[in-house]
Design a binder for these strands. Structure first.
Lengths: 123, 123
DNA sequence: TAATTATTTAAGCAAATACTTAAATAAATA
DNA sequence: TATTTATTTAAGTATTTGCTTAAATAATTA
């Protein structure tokens, strides 16, 4: 891949391009963090898990397996990804492990999940 | 995969499970829509494109190629995905095509992209 | 302590993703 | 009209993802 300027159009605004590069650079960490969160929430199964956790506060892997009609290991692997990313947390009660949305990301996902309900009203 | 109830724990709240299933069902369309948006925005390159479009209003494929330091076809394929999903729109000016965030999703992404800046302040 | 139950982990595989390079469109200009 | 420029499209490929099945942990109960 060429690393030179790819476009030679006269109208190209080089100040704008520089400004954009700097903006990406100074926000690099949070851009990476948030796009990672979005990628995790962008899987339909995980999005449903987050949607349900917001409504019910906490649920266990076998609840999810029942509700989503999928295997327990498949659910468990999704939960693990979100737990690794600190999107959700876990609490043990005997053999059962209850998952919940972590405090840290509660408001972020609340803002996104709001759109599920509002969109339904419109439709 | 077994389609039966996967978990036999006595404490399982069958009303809760039913309520969850119904909630997913009645919101199925918007859940699918929004998780699809999230998946598209969850790619770091596309997230950067949206971030830049929010700041600069409109940019062309070769601007993005310069700024993101990647090939024009690679950029173009990301733009196409977002255009197909109506996340962004396009306007032609001679040979140059300028992309912008579509009115429809402007506020949705604004809410998400806000977190980029605020997170930077905290850090 | 042995068996059962809930969950996780690991290996394997099919599908999806994101790039590459080359070719095709489309508009501007010589 | 031929050439250049901006963009898109298409084919090929390596990587990632999300499932499956089987085995491993961990806690409860008989």
């Amino acid at each position: 891949m060429k690393l030179e300027v790819s476009c030679t159009r006269a109208e190209a605004d080089h100040q704008q391009i520089l400004r954009c590069k700097e903006s990406l650079n100074s926000n690099a960490d949070s851009i990476e963090d948030i796009s990672r969160l979005m990628a995790l929430a962008g899987n339909e199964v995980r999005f449903k898990i987050l949607f349900l956790l917001q409504k019910e506060f906490e649920l266990c892997p076998c609840d999810f397996a029942d509700i989503l009609e999928m295997s327990v290991p498949a659910v468990s692997q999704h939960l693990r990804k979100m737990k690794d990313a600190k999107i959700i947390g876990a609490r043990r009660e005997g053999q059962t492990i209850f998952y919940h949305i972590s405090k840290k990301n509660e408001s972020f996902f609340a803002a996104i999940l709001t759109n599920v309900q509002s969109k339904r009203k419109i439709a």
